[in-house]
């Protein structure tokens, strides 16, 4: 045992220097060349920071595209999912009431057209995206709220589709489209 303790202490000290100091220092130095210096990419409107590009934020008002429900209340300093099991009766009641409330706010939408991502909460509670279908079912409501022709909003959605060629999922970044939506008005 004795002949192992001193090498162990010295080896640990070397590991601290290499993996806790030099390695992060290298990555930190490279980060200076990365977008926003590796400090998280902020999105600005008229010179004011209104959000972070990668992180979702709460949109509940009718005039905006609403994002997914968040178990963390879109708290970007405390991410978490709901961790509700698929058979949990309280959870199923929650989903049902989200469906009901969606139908109240969007009376022209048929129930079978509501995509599940709009009524289930995301893994991080900060999902920045909704599915393409999740955006199109909100068109009627937003057009009415904003007094804009539907075609304009449909066109806005079309120009905002992000599609990954690897998994084929078509999605919409909620913050980005809402910023552009606000500009439509002006």
């Amino acid at each position: 045992m004795k002949q192992n303790i001193f090498p162990a202490i010295r080896l640990t000290l070397v590991c601290i220097v290499v993996f806790m100091v030099i390695y992060p220092a290298i990555i930190w130095a490279v980060a200076k060349a990365a977008p926003s210096k590796g400090e998280g990419e902020a999105v600005t409107v008229n010179g004011k920071v209104v959000g972070y590009k990668l992180e979702g934020q709460s949109f509940t008002q009718d005039k905006y595209f609403n994002g997914r429900p968040s178990a963390a209340g879109y708290n970007a300093a405390g991410s978490s999912g709901s961790n509700k099991g698929p058979s949990n009766p309280d959870y199923l009641k929650d989903v049902q009431s989200r469906i009901d409330s969606f139908l109240v706010h969007n009376p022209t939408v048929k129930k079978e057209d509501i995509p599940s991502d709009l009524v289930t909460s995301s893994g991080s509670g900060l999902d920045p995206d909704i599915s393409l279908k999740g955006a199109t079912v909100q068109v009627d409501r937003i057009a009415k709220e904003r007094n804009l022709p539907k075609e304009k909003i449909v066109a806005l959605i079309q120009s905002n589709i992000e599609k990954s060629s690897m998994n084929g999922i078509e999605k919409i970044n909620v913050l980005k489209i809402n910023i552009e939506l606000d500009k439509l008005k002006q």
């Binding site: 997914r68 709901s82 698929p86 079978e112 909460s121 995301s122 893994g123 990954s164 998994n167």
Partner: peptide, 30 residues
């Protein structure tokens, strides 16, 4: 395939079971 209990509520689960998942990954990759 999605959650059968949610399927019975009559909504569209074309992305699969989405509770606790992120849209950018989808259900297969999750």
């Amino acid at each position: 395939k999605g959650n059968p209990a949610i399927h019975r509520m009559g909504i569209n689960q074309h992305l699969g079971s989405m509770e606790g998942k992120e849209v950018r990954f989808g259900s297969a990759a999750s």
